[in-house]
Design a protein around this nucleic acid. Structure first.
Length: 152
DNA sequence: GCCAACGTTGGC
DNA sequence: GCCAACGTTGGC
């Protein structure tokens, strides 16, 4: 079992949106970065635990937890000409993009990026490194434990 | 295979 | 809105 941090733009999918989904579940479609795709396709398994992070918004930070509830499978939006995630070069025989499904677990008070930056135990987190833009990053078990410990 | 140009991300 | 950082594209 692994730990991850997943970014979401709350104007797109917030932690409340996730919670309000049927079964609290959503297909994590639209990832168009190879590193992030590879994490989903090759490393994520059902039960993996996720820190849910709001990015590109007024109050960036961790806002809850989720878990992987379905193994990676081809992202359907790559085949949909009407989707902004449509990929001309992807075919059903040779899909280029994959996604897992994730499920809401808990909502917490915001742990802002500013607060995260002030915690020495978390200074190695990928999300806090300069220039990091990956929307899915692995989280150390120790980091996970620490963050869970300060959640309210 | 190099690398300049371009587009995107995301905190501030 | 700014801009640093980074990923992707495509000509050569």
């Amino acid at each position: 079992m692994r730990y991850w941090l997943v970014k979401a733009d709350p104007s797109d999918i917030s932690v409340d949106d996730l919670r309000n989904r049927p079964n609290g579940t959503i297909a994590w479609y639209g990832i168009r970065n190879y590193q992030a795709r590879n994490f989903m396709r090759d490393q994520m398994s059902v039960g993996d635990q996720i820190l849910f992070y709001h990015s590109s918004c007024k109050q960036p930070g961790i806002v809850g937890t989720a878990e992987v509830c379905k193994l990676a499978y081809p992202d359907s939006t790559q085949f949909d000409p009407n989707s902004k995630y449509f990929d001309l070069k992807a075919t059903s025989e040779c899909p280029r993009w994959f996604n897992v499904d994730i499920k809401f677990v808990s909502k917490s008070q915001l742990i802002s990026i500013k607060e995260l930056r002030g915690i020495p135990a978390l200074e190695g987190m990928r999300i806090l490194q300069k220039g990091n833009r990956l929307s899915i990053t692995p989280v150390d078990p120790a980091e996970w434990k620490y963050v869970i410990g300060i959640m309210r």
